[in-house]
Simulated scan of single mutants.
Amino acid sequence: MLEAQLQAALTRRERLGLRRTLQSQGHAGLVDVSSNDYLSLSRVPSIRQAVADALADVRIGSGGSRLLDGDSPLHARAEARLAAYFGAPAALLFNSGYDANVSLLTTLPQPGDIVVHDALVHASMHDGIRASRAAAVRAFRHNDAGDLERVLRGVLEELDATDEVQAGRRNVFLALESVYSMDGTVCSLRALAGVLEKFAPRGARHILVDEAHGVGVYGRGGRGVCEALQLAHVPSVRLITFGKAWGCAGAVVLCPPLWREYLLNYARPLIYSTALAPMQVAAVLCVLDALERGDVDEQIATLHTRTRQLYAALGRPYVCDPLPPAPIVPVYSAQPLELAARVQRAGFLVRAVRYPTVPRGEERVRLCVHAHNTREEMEQLAAVLAAPDASL
């Protein structure tokens, strides 16, 4: 019975053209404009050698959860260095950004609290919110401070919670991404934080910013969008992931020390998972070494140059002031699979993104620029996309 039900669900997805499959073969020789390795650090020889040298001195696996046998001086040293680099009071390593977001949003909002979030936040935030203890969860239109104000006013009236929030008996959480992974838009953090200030006093308002696609790309030494906007003090929590621009794996939550202790005691994905492998922690530290020395500054500058060149070649404006455009460039298409296949035949690795990852009617091919890409590649890619049958 179950097998029939599972097969029926897959068949239905197949019929709708939505069935997902692994695509790990057949892309040798294609120009990568798909992966999240924005700074191309996973292929930098000096970093690769540093990681290889570091692995000689660390265990492959951690052997248990952080609270049992998986903790080590290496984990503690990494957290201390990451907290110092990002100017945060404390840091806590997680196996992934997904685990971290689920942990934050299932544990931090208390019974009776309110969570508002940008409509385009990552699936991991949605999963955490769904399992949270918050009294109300509401979405507002992407990057729209006016709609956030409307939503907040409405939910406070609905719960008759205005006085309780002002008295600090209820908290309001605002969940955001610094760079949105499918659209490449940069968070309007200053305007959104200003709205939140109108409704909740300092101790009762908390902003969670997922910097997964902003860290490494923006800010001094790649410290992220919050730092670039000189607003690193505004979020209560910043989530830094290592699987994108850092070219590694894992994540770290930057937060107050009390929140770190609370997560250690209540975050189930952390408590009941084997700790981040020492070999991964060592790799993260090697990248951090390079960032601290300024060795990655050239890659960051090149990435922004290539992104601007792609926008110019596409003839598309970008509005990202005061920051450069993000290296995520969506190309909307009514036939994203066909467009992706044609671009791949022209020599570029791209991916179609469809419902349910993005809303119906917003299907696209998602382009990601990298520091190792060339100006010529950006111009050639734009020429392929500009062909008459590109369905832009």
Rank of each mutant, 00 (worst) to 15 (best):
M1N: 12
Q5D: 12
L6M: 13
Q7C: 10
L16I: 09
L18P: 05
R20A: 15
Q23M: 12
Q25A: 15
H27P: 06
V33T: 01
D37H: 12
D37F: 11
S40K: 04
S42G: 06
R48E: 09
A52N: 08
L55H: 14
S65D: 05
R77T: 11
E79K: 01
F86C: 08
F86A: 03
P89R: 01
A90L: 01
L93S: 05
N95R: 11
G97F: 05
N101Y: 01
V115W: 00
M125L: 12
V137N: 13
H142Q: 10
N143E: 14
E158F: 06
Q166V: 12
R169Y: 02
N171L: 10
A175E: 06
V186K: 09
L192C: 05
D210V: 05
A212L: 09
V215W: 07
V215M: 07
C226G: 08
Q230R: 13
L231K: 02
F242N: 01
G243I: 02
K244M: 08
A245L: 06
A245Q: 06
G247V: 03
G250F: 03
G250K: 00
P257F: 03
Y262R: 15
Y262N: 12
T274F: 10
V284D: 11
D289V: 00
R293F: 02
V296P: 00
E298I: 10
Q299I: 04
Q299G: 02
T302H: 10
L303P: 07
R306E: 03
T307V: 09
L310P: 06
P317A: 08
P317D: 09
P324M: 00
P324W: 00
V329K: 01
Y332F: 13
Q335G: 10
E338D: 14
Q344C: 13
F348Y: 08
L349C: 10
V350G: 08
R351A: 14
R354F: 08
T357D: 14
P359A: 03
G361W: 03
V365D: 04
Q380N: 12
D389E: 15
